[in-house]
Design a protein around this nucleic acid. Structure first.
Lengths: 191, 191
DNA sequence: CGCGACGTTGATTTGCCTCAACGATTGTGG
DNA sequence: CCACAATCGTTGAGGCAAATCAACGTCGCG
């Protein structure tokens, strides 16, 4: 709870009363590891703020191969934004990788809150902008850097994840097969 | 001018007075084709709304290869968002591909406007969210689809651009070399 | 006219994938 | 608490999509 309020206040002012009002519109939930919060093909109506644990979003293409879009751990939001904004069925799965506690903000409550606390527009604007910049960088990295370079960047940016998530999922995030990732890692260690 | 106001009103209400106030904080500029609006290594302080013409943003990696991040034509915003938000020197070039007219919104004026017209927070939040969703899709496409599929998607999404931009830049956008793109296109036409 | 950017085509190379087999680890039901 | 299955990581052989390098024709433009 406090971590979310602190996170908002980092980007947009919020009085204690307003923080309380915000929290009234949310719900806290706990999930076991490997719970599915959002299923591809359904309409996503919620956004999740992780207070503890670890979650991933991914989609499965024609060939039955998983591609990981995001990891989210403590202090991160996660959702299927395409489905959430458009109201159409999405392509993403969202699944816990550890026992996880989340604060749930439904789309309906979020719309209400935008009216009652207009400064939330600012907060979520800044979040979207930061996320956009991160995606642009990742996109450019995928186009111009080798798998090795992408892995090195991943290690620098998310050092804590390396021990927490199975290796094949890191492979999926950086965009290679588990087999190739294993060989690549072996080669990198030998130096 | 009107196209920008109409664009804002599509996402967030704006009275005629407010529209006028907005425009006071902007500036209109005309550029010849191949003008450089933003240079990698410098800090980006402006955002551009294209009223006519065509612009691209791209970066150049170690190997002296250009990678196109975006095309923007009439009705689109373009900027180096990383540099703009962080205040640090960016990696992007922004350059016109045709004679182009833009409405310039400087970062300083934008901050002022957020205070005077808080509903702009909403407008730019929605823009950022939409752009974010588009980037996520493009990222997933780059990881899981072949160059042919990416080109087909490009044709569907930006049919008007195909005649307007040199082929090698389309190749760069979808993430292949000009040589490979040429061969691929030949093969696709033969069916 | 001549130069430089563009598009094409061919030969060769390479980064990464596919498929398959095998040990190690995890976890789960009896 | 053990046995067995399932998942995970590793390794090897072979294949393919796309890159690289090089040569050449075309066109727009100063």
């Amino acid at each position: 709870m406090q971590s979310l309020i602190a996170h908002i206040q980092k980007h947009s002012p919020l009085t204690p009363d307003e923080a309380a009002l915000f929290l009234v519109h949310t719900e806290t939930r706990k999930y076991k590891s490997k719970s599915v919060l959002q299923h591809a093909g359904t309409v996503c109506t919620e956004t999740y703020f992780i207070t503890s644990g670890l979650v991933r979003s991914f989609y499965i293409n024609d060939n039955i191969v998983e591609h990981i879009l995001h990891f989210a751990c403590e202090g991160w939001w996660i959702s299927d934004m395409y489905s959430l904004f458009s109201g159409k069925p999405g392509d993403l799965f969202i699944e816990t990788l550890e026992d996880t506690e989340v604060i749930v903000l439904s789309k309906a409550q979020q719309e209400l809150l935008y009216q009652q606390l207009p400064q939330l527009e600012r907060y979520f604007r800044i979040l979207a902008e930061n996320s956009l910049v991160a995606h642009q960088e990742r996109l450019m990295d995928n186009m111009s850097r080798s798998a090795e370079e992408r892995f090195e960047k991943f290690c620098k940016r998310y050092p804590s994840l390396i021990q927490r998530v199975p290796q094949k999922q890191i492979a999926s995030y950086i965009g290679v097969t588990p087999e190739f990732f294993s060989k690549m890692k072996g080669k990198m260690l030998r130096k």
